[in-house]
């Protein structure tokens, strides 16, 4: 290992640390986080994280909100990768089922305004 190898690897880790900091930053604000579900690019619905519920998304997927955490509990696609995602909560993140193009996203009120304006 030469010096520049170590420098390059340090840069990778620095980018990761920076990205980590930025992506978790909004969670420090007290804006309410809500779950936004979209199917094939269209918004399907928005749900509060505070209420425990099971949501059927069309006929293809089912997700569950429990104690402020969201996860996919059922999918009819063959790979079921979306059910492998860790649960998402108010800190952000997303769960994606690519074959059905179902997206679960955590958005804050702030981001919502942005997406309407954009």
């Amino acid at each position: 290992m030469k010096k520049r190898d170590i420098i390059l690897i340090s840069i990778f880790i620095a980018i990761a640390a920076l990205g980590f900091g930025i992506s978790r930053w909004p969670s420090l604000s007290d804006k309410e986080a809500i779950l936004k579900i979209s199917v094939q690019g269209e918004t399907y619905g928005e749900y509060s994280l505070k209420q425990n519920q099971t949501i059927e998304i069309g006929s293809t997927n089912t997700c569950e909100i429990k104690d402020g955490k969201v996860h996919m509990i059922q999918a009819d696609c063959p790979d079921k990768l979306c059910m492998d995602f860790t649960a998402i909560d108010k800190d952000g993140g997303s769960i994606v089922c690519l074959p059905n193009q179902v997206v679960l996203e955590i958005v804050t009120d702030n981001q919502n305004i942005d997406s309407i304006a954009g």
């Binding site: 880790i13 990761a16 993140g93 997303s94 994606v96 193009q101």
Partner: peptide
């Protein structure tokens, strides 16, 4: 590619973890 297909850029939320895992 995944972000592009589903048009969800918040997928980039996973980027830091993916970099660390990649290292």
């Amino acid at each position: 590619i995944a972000s592009f297909v589903v048009q969800v850029y918040s997928l980039m939320y996973f980027m830091p973890i993916m970099i660390v895992a990649g290292v």
